[in-house]
Write a protein that binds this DNA or RNA. Structure first.
Lengths: 212, 212
DNA sequence: TTGCATCCTGACCGTATGGTCAGCTTTCAG
DNA sequence: CTGAAAGCTGACCATACGGTCAGGATGCAA
């Protein structure tokens, strides 16, 4: 009848179903937490029978793990902005932009990540002790060098990083609160831009790294 | 046999049991989320039989509601620092101190609060639309006045508030991450002090409100 | 066309959980 | 001292959930 809807090669089927499941799972885990999420809800949202979920992901834990690892990948990618930069203004500006973009485009993933960490990182502990720690140590070293070169004030690099994570992540994790205080409406393009500009201005000024 | 352990008036019993249950519940809700928490776990931690929990709190939802309202009270109290202040240096400094103290002393409560907001504030929506909104509007007005009086740079008051909430709350909600990056050890007194000082310095400098 | 691997799913199962209740013990006002 | 109210709890129940499985449908290589 139609090639437009039904060609579906094996590979495509698998890829598309996994994608649909992961997307639905991300949303449900974000909204209900791991304990509150049910395979049935995820299945319904993905438009598949529950048993089909277990065909692709053996257990709820495995599905959850996949979701968490996905967002962790995205999170780490944003980190690269830091390396290319010549100084704190470049580096921190682009990092804030990248993290704010994540908060805006992947609020559910951000919430799952936050939830995972809040509950003691049962799944990601290994990553935190290896990948995340290495990444952090590297960035601390970069910031330290910027300070030595007089490109910014002597601020504790770790607390500065926490501040960057906190402020940017906040717009995803506490998005509901922000929306409520915004009259029940989600932030407009303009408001997102203002948010980014404000954060950048306060932090860059705060560490004495204003553009020359 | 002993008066030392058994006088226990009715009133005392009720007060102490409710307190023990609320404390246990706060911890379990923080660690497992609402969905992952079980009445049995809370009962065990409180050292009471499960049925006794239902004597004091009819349902899991009711118990959860009490926990959330408790932390919301504490949260609002910290807000008063703002009013007494004569300028941004005073006001924001003491607010950061107060919120950091909450993050340190009530990390479980902070996590429950964060979780509640992340999941769309099913319990606290009303409070957020009334109490929280009024409080926020009031503080926005104060900040605006400070700007008019030239006591700080013209920063968007709302985004400044979000920044304060985010940075301070982060030390509770993401405490596990911070500990992991701190070599698996919780922050020392000195490190907490440094955290506070860093946040204050960066933000106050960032908004152009350094002490004269 | 055939055979096989992949994909799919309704029906089912064991368990854990929130909640109930009948009946016990303890406190305390009168 | 007494009776009633408050406090307590082991045993129980209905439900919902994660997970299983036998067997059917579908794509595809040969």
């Amino acid at each position: 009848m139609s090639e437009t809807t039904r060609p579906m090669r094996r590979q495509d089927i698998r890829r598309e179903n996994e994608k649909a499941i992961l997307l639905a799972a991300e949303k449900v885990f974000a909204e209900a937490g791991f304990g509150g999420a049910t395979m049935q809800l995820i299945a319904d949202l993905a438009g598949l029978p529950k048993a089909n979920l277990h065909y692709y992901f053996a257990t709820k834990e495995e599905l959850y793990r996949s979701v968490v690892q996905n967002i962790f990948e995205i999170w780490l990618q944003a980190a690269n902005c830091f390396d290319a930069a010549r100084g704190p203004v470049d580096g921190i500006s682009s990092y804030i932009d990248a993290k704010m973009e994540i908060s805006r485009r992947h609020p559910d993933g951000s919430k799952v990540w936050a939830s995972e960490v809040m509950h003691g990182a049962p799944v990601l502990q290994d990553y935190m002790e290896s990948t995340l720690r290495e990444w952090t140590d590297g960035r601390v070293e970069i910031i330290r060098r910027w300070i030595e070169e007089g490109k910014m004030d002597p601020v504790d690099p770790r607390h500065l990083l926490y501040m960057l994570w906190a402020t940017t992540q906040h717009y995803a994790d506490f998005g509901h609160q922000i929306e409520t205080l915004n009259g029940g409406k989600s932030l407009s393009d303009r408001q997102w831009r203002e948010a980014k500009e404000n954060i950048k201005r306060v932090i860059l000024t705060g560490i004495g790294a204003q553009p020359a």
